[in-house]
Amino acid sequence: MSSILDSVNQRTQLVGQNRLELLLFKLNGRQRYGINVFKVREVLQCPQLTAMPKRNKFVRGIAHIRGQTISVIDLSLATGGKPIADLSTAFIIISEYNRSVQGFLVSGVERIVNINWEAIMPPPKGTSGKQSYLTAVTEIDKELVEILDVEKILEEISPSPTMIRDEALTKSITTDLGNRLILIADDSAVARNQVKRALEPLGVQMHLVNNGREALTYLQQLAKDCQTSITEKVGLLISDIEMPEMDGYTLTAEVKADPKLRKLHVILHTSLSGVFNQQMVQKVGAEDFIAKFNPDELAQSVQKWLHTD
C-alpha cells in the first residue's frame, strides 16, 4: 500500500491548474469516498489500537506510529454509520488537517485518481443525516464518489476556539475598510462560520460564498461598477484552497490576472499545510497563507493586509 503514495511529491504540477488527485476509499458497503492526496501522509494496515478512557465515541483508540501517538477516528461512526467491524483488514489514512495529525479508520483503500476541480460539484441542497457530512461529490467510473467534510467531523470531536484575544483586536479595522467588505470563500459551512465568528468582533462587513467559482463571479460582477479596481468595494479576499468547481489557487491566479481585480489582497486560509503550499502561494501571487484554524493569526493577517497597499 505504501507504493500508492510514492509519487505524491512529484505531482505538485497539478495544483494551480485546477486539478487534484483523490485517494479513493470505502467505509462500510459499496459507497466510495475520496480524500485529497495532499492531505495524506501515509496509508497503512490498521495497527494494534490502544483504548483510552474518556475518549470521544468516534475515536476507536490511539496508534503509536513512527514515534508519534495518533488518535484513530472511525470515519463510518463519525458520519452516522456503523463502526468498522474487522480491524484486522482495515486501513488507517494518516492525514494532517488544521495543524494536527490524525488517523482515519476505513475498511478499504483503492487507488488514486487524477481529476479536474470543475468535475467536483457541491452536494445536493437540503442534504441531511449522513449526507450532511458531504462537502462535495464527483463521478468516477460512472459511480458517485463522495468527499466528506472532514473539518466538520473534526470540529464535532474537538471544537476549535474562535474568539480573538483582546491583544489581537484593533479599532482601526472598520476605519481602514470603510464601506468595503471582506469576501470569504470556503466550501465547508463549518469553516465559513469559524471565520465569520472570529472576525465579527472586528466589526467588519463580510460576504460568504461556497467556492472559488462563486467568489470570482461575485468579484467580476462588482468590478463592473468600479472605476479602477475592485478594492473600491472589497478590502480583502480570504479563500480556502480545496473547493469544488474552482480551487483557491486557481481563484487567486484568476484574480491576479484581471486588471480590475489584481490589486485585491488574497489570504489563502486552508487545512492544507507544508512547505509545498508556501511555494504555491508565491507562484499564484497570494499575499498570505494561514493554516486553519487560529483566530488570532487570522485577525493579525487581516489587519496587516488592510494596511498594506
Rank of each mutant, 00 (worst) to 15 (best):
V106C: 11
M246H: 13
C46D: 12
E21T: 12
S95N: 11
I35S: 11
L222Q: 09
K263V: 03
E167N: 14
L181I: 09
A198D: 02
A257K: 09
E254M: 10
L23C: 09
K263W: 07
Q205S: 12
K26T: 15
D166E: 13
T308A: 14
G16V: 01
D240C: 04
V137A: 03
F289W: 03
Q220W: 13
A168N: 15
F25Q: 11
T170P: 01
I140L: 06
V190Y: 02
Q17R: 12
V106A: 10
E143P: 06
G285E: 01
L22A: 03
E110W: 05
L14A: 10
Q303A: 13
Q10T: 15
L306A: 02
G108R: 14
Q220P: 11
G235D: 07
R213F: 14
T135L: 04
F91E: 09
E156G: 03
A168F: 10
L222T: 14
N28V: 02
L49D: 06
R99G: 15
K26F: 02
Y97E: 09
K260T: 06
D225W: 12
S95M: 09
E242K: 06
T69I: 13
Q68N: 14
L169Q: 05
K292E: 12
G178M: 02
N294E: 12
M121W: 03
P161T: 11
D296M: 01
V145L: 08
W305A: 02
T69R: 10
F91G: 04
I94D: 08
L202S: 03
A198T: 13
G129V: 00
R111D: 07
E151S: 08
R66T: 06
V101G: 11
H207M: 15
Q17L: 03
I65A: 07
K233Q: 13
Q17Y: 05
S76I: 01
D86W: 04
V190D: 00
A223W: 04
L134C: 10
S132V: 00
G61L: 01
K152T: 01
N9A: 08
K304M: 07
H307S: 15
L23A: 07
R11F: 10
N9K: 10
I157S: 09
I290K: 08
L154C: 13
Q205T: 08
R99F: 13
S100Y: 12
V40W: 11
I120Y: 07
I238K: 09
A51K: 15
I184L: 13
A63G: 13
P123V: 01
Q279A: 06
K224T: 13
V101T: 11
T50E: 09
N179K: 09
I115F: 06
R192H: 07
I153E: 00
S172L: 08
T308K: 14
F104A: 15
C226A: 11
G248H: 03
T89P: 03
V234S: 10
D74Y: 01
T270W: 02
L199R: 01
R66N: 07
S158G: 10
E143C: 12
D176V: 05
I35G: 08
I157D: 11
L148I: 05
Q10P: 01
G103T: 08
A223K: 04
R180S: 08
A299P: 00
I73R: 03
V15P: 00
A291P: 04
P122S: 05
V190L: 00
W117L: 02
L154K: 06
L222K: 14
I182Q: 05
E245R: 13
